[in-house]
Amino acid sequence: MSIQVILAQALLGLNAGVFYAMLSLGLAVIFGLLNIINFAHGAMYMLGAFIALVGYSYLDQWFGIGLEVGFWPSLILAPLVVGGLGILIERTMLKRLYKLDHIYGLLLTFGITLILQGLFSNYFNVSGTPYPGQPDALSGVVNLGFMYFPTYRLFAIVFSLVVCFTTWYFIEHTKLGSRLRAGVENPQLTQAFGLNVPLMITLTFGFGCGLAGLAGVLAAPIYSVSPLMGADLIIVVFAVVVIGGMGSIMGAILSGLALGLVEGLTKVIYPPAASTVIFFLMVLVLLFRPAGLFGKEK
């Protein structure tokens, strides 16, 4: 097996890893403040990809007004729409569950997942539709010295990393971020200091969902867009979150990247295990470090 093949798979794995990182980051941010796990995170990712697809391929076909939303506008529009939907869900439904056991939040978002997935399965091909809107500027391949790599995939990796680390910087090193962390640490006390914690919760949920939508747009040109694309991904991301522990933002990002890499390399070494390797790693982590690699024992 040549070193080129391994490096190529490692990069492709990293490509999957940035999506894991973005989704687990969103889950961790939401979990920190709301104490719920958003099962619908996968559906939000799927929704992001569909907004890009519909904007590019179907708007004109459906309404015949010559309207076409390209990749770049989608990159801004989709996270806003998905984040807005998240805010709507938080304001109208999740808000009512905060006093109850946290499992109800998971169950509610599971129901929302079924609704979204079912709706899209009605109108779109379950086996996937390719997204043709990849911008020309990002087509072709780049020479990395040791191999040729598709330009778009490289762009997706770099762009996602920038988003992840900007989010980390924002939360850990800005004033607004410190207020957010205060809200995570002790909501009552933070509220007593005059900060609007309910508003912070709403915006955080919207932001987390928006991140998932953004990941969906970025994924659209790489994977085919399907109503089921989020559901299978979210379970892997859950395992990533269990492995990393949700104690730290950086932990969520790094474990996402690392596990994507491991998965990519497994595809070269022993392909049949590629779909389960992350789950087996989760078993190992549970056996030897139950709180997760970056987690704190509570």
Partner: peptide
């Protein structure tokens, strides 16, 4: 009804969690 079953089951889920626990 095909995939509508999923939509309906999802809706029942949401309603149960919100008002019919």
């Amino acid at each position: 009804f095909g995939s509508w079953v999923q939509v309906i089951l999802g809706t029942i889920f949401v309603v149960c969690v919100l008002v019919f626990r």
